[in-house]
Amino acid sequence: MAAIEIKNLWKEYGDQVVLERLNAKVEEGEFVTIVGASGCGKTTFLKMMLGTEQASRGQLLLDGEPIAAEPDETRGIVFQRYSVLPHLSALRNVMLAGELSANRWLGLAFGARRRALRDEAREMLESVGLSQALDKYPHELSGGMQQRLALAQTLIKRPRILLLDEPFGALDPGIRRDMHKLVLDLWQKQNLTVFMITHDLAEGFYLGTRLWVFDKERLDPQDPGRYGARVTYDLPVGNSDKGTLQSISHSVDSTARALA
């Protein structure tokens, strides 16, 4: 049985159909990269996976059960920004998950437990290259460092599913490449199932194991909200050719123009 099953999923806001007839199965450990025109519903899909938005029709199943309708420990997320807590130092941000599970009421750990959490957090921060910034607050870190911190904070909890909504969109291409390596690395180590939205089609084409293109099959130029986006391409990454990339790129661009 697939870990995640999407069965005829629809999402509508009022009259506007954002997503329609989504069907897919995702196995444990897959790395799905999602691309698509701006405004076509990628974030909306991620929010349904996260549990902050509910499907209008259809089902989203995790292990055969409807996925929890509120965020919980099974699904970790890194947003484009505001992912880390500004009032905690880098180390405390990473220790947070452990502290929360150590004490139901205080959300704090003490003594040996605390020391263990701190060592673990240090190691995690080291693996994302932040060992120099343990005691810094997020506002003292650069954008790239904040996102690495957010990854460390999320992954120390060992979620089953990792959701990434353009987490590196605001970073330079060079740093972005480093971050991708980091994510791939952590993904392999932890056997995560990853859904990652990116704006860069070429990037989506080489990252991960599977590429989804969200696009509107039917497009009414007078009323773009009449039909929703679907997964128009579902490709295993690595064995696709240049021609496919160009044809996807062309169709996504024309949708983007219609939505703009």
Partner: peptide, 27 residues
């Protein structure tokens, strides 16, 4: 307080009381 942070706390396993104590109160 940004909704992202409240969601973040939940994905790290926080219950309502812990969100108040570790996120809202200090902020």
């Amino acid at each position: 307080i940004p909704a992202e942070q409240v969601i973040k706390m939940q994905t790290l396993g926080a219950n309502t009381w812990q969100i108040v104590l570790r996120l809202v109160w200090p902020q």
